[in-house]
Amino acid sequence: MKEVVILSGKGGTGKTSITGAFAVLAGQQAIIADCDVDAANMHLLLAPDFAERSDFYSGELAVIDSNKCTQCGICAYKCRFGAFSLSNGTYVLDPLSCEGCGYCQITCPEGAISLVPRKAGQVFVSTTKVGSTMVHAKLDIGAENSGKLVAKVKNSAQELAKLKHKEFVIVDGSPGIGCPVVSSLAGASYVVLVTEPTVSGLHDLERIAGVIQKFRIPMGCIINKFDINPEMSTQISHFISSNGIDYLANIPFDPSFTKAMADAKTIVETQSPAKLIIEEVWATLTKKLIN
């Protein structure tokens, strides 16, 4: 079983469109994992059925037992996040301000405060429109993506791939370069970077490539909309070739990308120049992965 992770560093580069296209090309050979839970969008392209749902918990939250509370105010005094306030003579907790540090629990003389797991969202296991299995998640408002959630989504995808003897796991990776990204790289066989030739595109590419290199994972790069700024595209291709990154493809600025998206289709389900390019990239990738 081989795992491909698609990453971009910043939003808006076409990462999810390209991941969705790979998912359609791989069909039932692959399990799909959407780890971009901050902006989970792949369900719009792959029409999963949300068949299995489970709540997801991350971190903790303080709760006050009003029967035990004597309104002494020590919690409010100790809390550095301003999470406790006095309302009509009783202390209440603002869950959005509470960071779950637990200091209040330790210092409450009445033992009136306990910590409970904080619900952060839902995880789904679905069947997509091409018949493959997809693991994805939705965060609650104010909840943050974490290495833990990414690990959960990825681990279930990997287990399903082993159980069902699938050849590939295709992962839409998390944005940024923090803990969720590191978590989305665990066990990866290959990383596809999707970038665009803008002033911030190259900067983000350098940072994310640095993270991947540390884990010794082979990677390749797709420059999307390469023709909107040929000079920047040249700079990016220099960076790619001088850092041992496979140059996978240049995709031209192509309105059919959004046209396809508007019809809830991936680019490979339309007739367009980009379709052929992505099919070729996927063929190259599968060859690389199987050998």
């Binding site: 939003g11 901050d38 902006a39 959005l96 965060l139 408002i141 104010g142 909840a143 943050e144 993506n145």
Partner: peptide, 9 residues
């Protein structure tokens, strides 16, 4: 910042 998590709030 983009998104709907704590930094946006």
């Amino acid at each position: 910042p983009p998104g709907t998590s704590c930094p946006v709030v």
